[in-house]
């Protein structure tokens, strides 16, 4: 059966991991002030560019295909989410469960074929 107490170490781990990471980020900031390496100037604080100020806002429009990938990801990741419980209970649900999932997979495969033929998977 589910042993929820097993999740408590993970929570404690989360606390320790966040603390450790935060220490790594903020301690050097304090140390550099003490050692005197903290010495910012305008040029140092400007964003990275090849020797000139940036022409435009870096957060510009980007290719719509990234959205497309994200949408496809949601579809197939959800499909995987449906498959997980099915995978561990295959023994109990038998052929009926297997067939049902195969029908589901076939429908999604048809969706993939459609996306493929429509060029949604191309990056050219």
């Amino acid at each position: 059966m589910t042993d929820l107490s097993q999740y408590l170490p993970i929570l404690i781990f989360l606390g320790i991991a966040v603390g450790l990471s935060a220490l790594f980020v903020f301690l050097p900031m304090g140390v550099s002030r003490l050692t005197g390496t903290h010495n910012p100037d305008a040029a140092k604080l400007s964003e990275y560019e090849c020797g000139f100020p940036a022409f435009e806002d870096s957060r510009s429009q980007f290719d719509v295909r990234f959205y497309l990938v994200a949408i496809l990801f949601i579809i197939f990741d959800l499909e995987a989410a449906f498959l997980f419980p099915w995978a561990v209970s295959l023994q109990d649900i038998g052929w009926a469960g297997w067939t049902t999932m195969m029908v589901f997979l076939a429908e999604l495969a048809l969706g993939l074929v459609y996306a493929w033929k429509k060029g949604a998977l191309d990056w050219e």
Partner: peptide
């Protein structure tokens, strides 16, 4: 021992949270 540089245009909070 290096200096932590936070670019002037950056979102300070998010910038520091990302590596964490």
């Amino acid at each position: 021992l290096q200096e932590t540089i936070i670019p002037s245009g950056a979102n300070r909070g998010l910038f520091l949270i990302a590596p964490i």
